[in-house]
């Protein structure tokens, strides 16, 4: 659950590698999927796109197709109906990819602890890299989570 951001990449990296990592860090494209959340987190995600927070200044774009995405941002406790679709979408995102669980529901099922139709939390079904807590998560927290996810993305690509 905890992750350490590695700031020093070592001096032996070649210039091309450095350029590639810089570009990966500066242009994370996000694919957002709602697995049965109350829409609170989704609205906060839209708030992070709004003029006040504007995550496009970090190069983030919200993409409609999973094949364009780097970051898979999931909200909501995973309902049974959603489970297969979730795995399907996760597999459609090209490598390297990072999964972010956003909001209390995706992190720990939240208020749906003993609900019969819920088979979450998210990290039981697909590997999760970053957890953003909050109910709903704040736009500042979302931007922070994306930044941390991007650092993991650069390390995943080798």
């Amino acid at each position: 659950m905890l992750h350490v951001i590695v700031d020093d990449y070592g001096d032996d990296l070649k210039i091309a590698e450095k350029i590639r990592k810089y570009c990966q860090r500066k242009s994370p494209w996000i694919f957002h999927f709602d697995t049965g959340s109350c829409n609170g987190c989704d609205i906060e995600l839209l708030a992070a796109m709004s003029p006040k927070y504007d995550f496009e200044r970090f190069g983030c774009l919200l993409k409609g197709s999973p094949r364009h995405a780097d970051i898979f941002l999931v909200t909501g406790p995973v309902t049974r109906k959603c489970k297969d679709r979730l795995v399907n979408l996760y597999e459609q995102i090209p490598e390297p990819k990072v999964v972010i669980a956003m909001g209390a529901c995706a992190v720990s099922k939240g208020i749906f602890q003993n609900a019969y139709g819920v088979c979450g939390p998210l990290d039981k079904i697909i590997p999760v890299d970053v957890y953003i807590s909050g109910c709903p998560a704040k736009p500042e927290a979302i931007i922070d989570g994306i930044r941390k996810g991007v650092e993991i993305l650069t390390r995943k690509s080798g």
Binding site: I19, Y22, C23, Q24, S27, G59, D70
Partner: peptide, 11 residues
């Protein structure tokens, strides 16, 4: 340009 290079490095 950054988007272009990033997309080239992807699967």
């Amino acid at each position: 340009l950054l988007d272009f290079i990033k997309l080239l490095s992807k699967e």
